[in-house]
Design a protein around this nucleic acid. Structure first.
Length: 469
RNA sequence: CGAGAAGUAGCACAAUUUGGUAGUGCACUACAUUUGGGAUGUAGGGGUUGCAGGUUCAAAUCCUGUCUUCUCGACCA
């Protein structure tokens, strides 16, 4: 087991991030740009994410399917806005073996057109609706700059694609899935996310509305951590998807799509991690507890088997003869929420030492109380991690009342800045040109209380701006 | 994609300037002694120096190309 030195977080955040990814053995670089190897420690986190989210999707009536990997050029071209948005980052296949393809195909950058192409054949009647399909798969987008988890060319994700009889039903689905994502990230990943609507400029290519989950990293930079789109009938019309309604009238269905990626793992690292390495929220940690033996003694071995006998959370035992300090450091870099140190010194009082990964606080408990204490502690850690992240994020939320103030904050302070905004792309672009900040999301539940800080015309929205990964 | 930097064992680096047997530390394997914050000893294993060409009697070292990584920009759901 290698343990690499981690660059201090406040010294060089970017380097710290890659150091943690490597030291915790989450990923490894491959020789293919933008395609990382997700190692067992990293993949186990993704499996936990899948397990919890997939169960939630299914509870809400969704079914999993698997669509083709390739999209013929003509199929991608069917919906004009869609293809225009994706064209620059599409990877093309022109040959199959020696044979040049008559029509080139791209590796799916997302699967809307594949689902539509299928749905047009299977949706005939209102009885066929809703169609609630999801797939777990990889997609390819030819990004120019890549970073582990945050931006890769090969993306491991989940994409839901649904078709509905009515606009209302489809809009409800869009919001329902947005909230599934929001709840998951808040409650399971302990990420204090902000949800809202993307601007026209930033919305998904081909969507009517794009809702987004915006997380703020330790350094104040935004990470878009999931989106849920309402498509209206645009794709359905382009693909000629129709159904007969209850009155025997031919109708066009309404569509949604929604997705999250392994980028969420990057968000966990950059929100909770520290100079010792990864810190995993208990609810997503594949291993909740690690038991570390100190010294080679029969009493220690016996105590470990007693503790594990009725432990009802996932655990690992490290009874190797590596030095205690080494074993502690290794457990820390992997982010395991609780470690139990079992050594003779405590056993004299029939005690063991529990150590919280998030605070590194040491707690002595009687051997017989370990199980209850762990249950309680996992819960406390989960809550504390969320609250600490929330507090930190709140300390980097600003509101600007005029453009000078906006520019000053943008220049001096990392984080998100809330403003009144007229809704025009011109003002959005001006902010981008002047400060490099992009719009994060429109806050639908807040009403503007002044004029647009850029042009001073009547404001339409409250909106957050911020730098993004 | 533009500008810059870097690639030598799993990791960190030396040897490159001045071409001449590829080395050190950590990690790894075995045994022994250890064990409450990154143990110690002894003995071992691991390399087409990112890849491909070229120059040369001889290339880690010089030249060309290419790939990957990092930083900054541009681009980007």
């Amino acid at each position: 087991m290698k343990l690499t030195k981690i660059t201090p977080r406040d010294e060089d955040f970017a380097k710290w991030y890659t150091d943690v990814c490597m030291a915790a053995n989450l990923v490894s670089y491959s020789n293919i740009k933008g395609s990382m190897i997700i190692c067992p420690n990293g993949y186990a986190i993704w499996e936990e994410i899948q397990k919890i989210m997939d169960a939630e999707f299914k509870k809400l009536g969704h079914q999993n399917v698997q669509m083709p990997l390739f999209i013929p050029e003509s199929l991608l071209n069917v919906e004009k806005n869609h293809v225009k948005g994706f064209a620059p980052e599409v990877a093309w296949v022109t040959h199959g073996g020696e044979e040049e393809l008559e029509e080139k195909m791209c590796v799916r950058p997302t699967s809307e057109v594949l689902f539509c192409d299928y749905y047009k054949n299977v949706i005939k009647s209102y009885r066929d609706l809703p169609k609630l399909y999801n797939q777990w798969c990889t997609i390819v987008r030819w990004e120019k700059t890549t970073r582990p988890f945050l931006r890769s060319r090969e993306i491991l994700w989940q994409e839901g694609h649904t078709m509905h009889e009515t606009e209302e039903e489809a809009l409800n689905e869009t919001l329902q899935m947005l909230h599934v994502y929001e709840d998951f990230q808040r409650n399971i990943l302990a990420l204090p996310v902000i949800v809202g609507l993307k601007t026209e400029k930033e919305k998904f290519a081909g969507a009517v509305k794009t809702y987004t989950i915006e997380a703020m990293m330790y350094d104040g930079v935004a990470l878009q951590n999931g989106t849920s789109h309402y498509f209206g009938q645009d794709f359905a019309k382009a693909f000629n998807i129709t159904f007969l309604d209850r009155n025997n009238n031919l109708q066009t269905p309404y569509q949604t799509s929604w997705g999250v990626t392994t980028r969420m793992i990057g968000a966990i690292i950059m929100t909770h991690g520290d100079d010792h390495g990864l810190v995993l929220p208990p609810k997503i940690a594949p291993t909740k507890v690690i038991i570390i033996s100190i010294g080679d003694d029969e009493k220690v071995t016996k105590t470990i088997s007693e503790i594990t006998k009725d432990l009802d959370v996932t655990y690992e035992i490290d009874d190797s003869n590596k030095s205690p300090g080494f074993k502690f450091a290794e457990a820390e870099v992997k982010g395991i929420p609780i470690r139990i140190e079992v050594g003779l010194r405590d056993l004299e009082n029939d005690e063991v030492t529990l150590v919280r990964r998030d605070t590194l606080e040491k707690i002595k408990v009687k051997t017989s109380e370990v199980k209850n204490k762990i249950t309680e502690l996992l819960d406390t850690i989960q809550k504390d991690m969320y609250n600490r992240a929330l507090e930190r994020r709140n300390s980097m939320l600003y509101e600007a009342h005029d453009y000078e103030e906006f520019k000053t904050i943008a220049k001096e302070k990392p984080g998100f800045i809330k403003i009144n905004w007229c809704g025009s792309e011109e003002c959005e672009n001006k902010i981008k040109d002047d400060t490099g900040l992009k719009s994060r999301c429109i806050l639908e539940e807040e009403t503007p209380d002044g004029n647009c800080v850029v042009c001073n015309k009547k404001a339409a929205h409250k909106i957050y701006f911020g730098k993004q990964y």
